[in-house]
Design a protein around this nucleic acid. Structure first.
Lengths: 226, 226
DNA sequence: GAGTGGTCTAGACCACCCC
DNA sequence: GGGTGGTCTAGACCACTCC
């Protein structure tokens, strides 16, 4: 099937495969959602010229992201502790003033190259014994899922451009004043409860952001998470 | 309707509103796709705690983006000309070597503050008389749509962190060596044909990127673009 | 077992595109 | 007018959750 060529019509698929038209239709819409086809009312459904290698818009942990890029991720622990939430963190996670958070600072490494410095905060009430059960060199998101059943499905992220300070420069092995990305991320579970607040600094010389905007069927309706 | 509360079931909606269950279902899925609700098999559909103010993942022109943020955008023309495509541009737009491109360089301004420098390239064959019909102080995307019927629905974007060079610093009124974002964007029409290749430099001190990752119903099926 | 969402059926009418 | 996708109907069975 070549780009630009029409796919079989909904009518034809339903006859040929002995399924109802709604079912054939759903299959075609799935293709549209994956970005490999697009529909035009009154004309047909056609193979698109570009395709998604990967849904870049999914929430990914550093570990998943690096594995997807073909790198071997790991982390070096700087510190892990239970502390009172700073106001910024408490606000992001909707905590009352007396609630504690687990704070983990790590250097994120891909293929033995330090890529960024990251500070993660989670409400202690959510995962009280996390520090005993989590190997900070591995994936936090995997541990949250496997040990606590916490499934992060959404995140809001703000990215700023900045310069490496003395401390970051030393940890990352780059000159002070090098360009860096500053990330601030709040992550949510299904239903919208905020469970993680992260601030991180990533090297501008070894790290890029790839975004796909629009495309596919943008508005949704089926096949989503339960 | 408060966050966490269940919405009426598909069954109930279909009875109460005298519509079929498929229709009620579609309405609920639309809410899920907008991020204001989420469904759980066997349990129900619930109001989510966070909502999308705006679908950040849509393709937006600078003009649309700034208007969405409540700023007044405009642009100052640096140059506009028809030139042979450089190899990088030709590759991104899939042009044969002899094809020409229209190249427009502009300073992008929001509320009288220069925000970035942008170089846009489009195939001349697509919009031959663009330079006569386009006021470079206004929105290029709007002109493409209104004059040529070109509707940009998707874009791939790579973001890097860098430092302002001498030329950018002067145009943007910032010190040389200030942190900046470097954007490289390829934009597509429905069906995947590349129609625009843009490189731009935006101020790190006045510009931030906001991303929403995951969320809503991620996989699609209805309500998409025709 | 009762209630929920996920999927499917076999029809129907409409709006749109192209001839 | 004939073909296409967009929407809708009035049922059905299944998988899952909760009691």
């Amino acid at each position: 099937m070549k780009p630009g060529k029409p796919l079989p019509s909904e009518e034809l698929i339903s006859k040929r495969l002995h399924v109802s038209r709604m079912t054939a239709r759903q299959a075609l819409k799935l293709l549209c959602s994956l970005g490999v086809a697009h529909s035009q009312r009154g004309k047909g459904t056609f193979v698109s010229e570009i395709k998604l290698e990967k849904n870049i818009r999914e929430v990914q942990s550093f570990t998943e992201e690096m594995e997807a890029r073909g790198s071997r991720p790991h982390s070096r622990l700087i510190s892990s502790e239970v502390v009172s939430a700073e106001s910024e963190t408490g606000e992001a996670l909707h905590l009352s003033p007396e609630e504690k958070v687990i704070r983990i600072r790590r250097v994120r490494v891909a293929d033995a190259v330090p890529m960024g410095v990251e500070t993660t905060c989670l409400p202690q009430s959510l995962c009280p014994d996390l520090l005993d059960r989590f190997d900070p060199r591995t994936s936090l998101y995997r541990t949250l899922l496997q040990v606590y059943g916490i499934h992060i499905v959404q995140a809001d992220e703000v990215v700023e451009a900045g310069l490496a300070g003395t401390k970051e420069a030393r940890l990352l092995g780059i000159p002070k004043g090098s360009p860096v990305f500053l990330f601030t991320r709040t992550a949510y579970v299904e239903g919208g409860k905020a469970v993680e607040y992260v601030k991180s600094t990533f090297r501008g010389d070894r790290y890029k952001i790839a975004n796909r905007l629009g495309g596919g069927g943008v508005l949704v309706v089926s096949g989503g998470e339960a």
